[in-house]
Simulated assay, not measured.
Amino acid sequence: MNMKLKICGIKHNPTEVASLSPDYMGFIFYDKSPRYVAEVPEDIPLHIQKVGVFVNASVEDVVEKTKGFGLAAIQLHGDESVEYIELLRHSFRESEINVPEIWKVFGIKDQLDIDALRKFESVSDKFLFDTKGASRGGNGVTFDWQLLKNYNLNTPYWLSGGIGLEEMKEVKIFSQTKAAKKLYGIDINSKVEISPGLKDKKKIHELKTCYDDDRTTLVSR
């Protein structure tokens, strides 16, 4: 499967971003974020998967927004526990909506705690590895991707944290290493912005063109 591209933290110009047809568009429902949105635009094309980003939100709020905005995936960017995710999954099954994928986010600084990740394998469809920083995402800084060389779990993961056009060469190199065996795609945010939540269409186009050119080699193995 070819690796996927997700543009996250979209607030001010979602229609422009959608016109570039990324695989996923992420909308942040965390009111302490400068990229916070209260709703998802109705004109997002059906072929683009909509992702809701939540931080320690109530189960009821996540289910309500998933149902209201047709979210295909839920990205949990807070301190959510295994028990929380189990309850969330149960609530989705009880509701009259398609159950979305659930992605658990882990911030990485100078080590990867495999044991901590293993506890979440049974309740997570994918992991997302971001740079641990002052903010819960959108810090614009990469972490040492070679920390993932010991990742031996079965759950596919997103690579995030400070990825922009300048990092695409390194992404391609990394994708061909053993550490990228379960790499599902890359998550882009602050490096393609004019200001928080306002995406730079030109930068996204250049990055996506570069990314699409390499899709045949950037493959999840």
Rank of each mutant, 00 (worst) to 15 (best):
V171I: 09
P22L: 12
T216E: 14
I44E: 06
D212S: 12
T209A: 14
V192Y: 07
T142R: 15
T217Y: 12
E101Q: 10
G70Y: 04
H205R: 09
V37I: 10
I74T: 03
R215G: 06
S95K: 15
E39N: 13
C8W: 01
I114D: 02
G138C: 03
I114Q: 01
W158Q: 11
I163M: 08
E170R: 09
A179W: 01
S175H: 09
I186G: 12
G9E: 14
G70V: 05
G162R: 00
I163R: 08
D125C: 00
N189T: 06
V192H: 06
K199G: 07
P41W: 03
I85Q: 00
L5W: 03
G68P: 11
L207G: 02
N98W: 04
I28C: 04
P34C: 03
L183S: 05
I85D: 00
Y151E: 15
H47L: 11
I10C: 11
L20M: 04
E166K: 12
I194H: 12
E193H: 05
S175Y: 07
N189G: 08
D31V: 07
K181D: 14
E193W: 14
Q75L: 10
W103G: 00
G161L: 07
S58L: 05
D187H: 04
Y151K: 08
R136T: 06
K104I: 00
V123C: 02
F27L: 07
I194E: 12
F29K: 10
C8L: 04
N98R: 12
N189P: 06
A18E: 10
K202C: 09
W103K: 03
I102N: 00
S21F: 08
I186Q: 12
F54W: 09
I173G: 14
H77A: 05
L88A: 01
Y36L: 06
N98S: 10
L165S: 02
V63L: 04
S91M: 00
G140F: 03
E167I: 07
I7D: 06
D125Q: 05
S160F: 01
I102P: 01
K4Y: 05
K132R: 07
V99Y: 02
V82Y: 10
K182Y: 01
I194L: 08
Y184M: 15
Y157P: 06
P45F: 02
F143I: 11
M1P: 13
I163K: 08
G197Q: 03
K199R: 08
Q111S: 01
Y24I: 07
I186N: 14
D213Y: 08
K201I: 10
E121D: 05
L128W: 02
G52K: 00
D43V: 09
D213C: 10
E64T: 11
D200E: 04
A38W: 11
S135T: 14
L87C: 04
Y36H: 15
Q146E: 15
L76H: 01
Y151R: 13
R215N: 14
K149D: 13
G197A: 02
K149E: 11
G78S: 04
K203R: 10
D144W: 06
P45K: 05
L147W: 07
K191C: 11
M25P: 02
L112T: 12
M3I: 09
T177S: 13
T217M: 15
Y211K: 13
P100D: 05
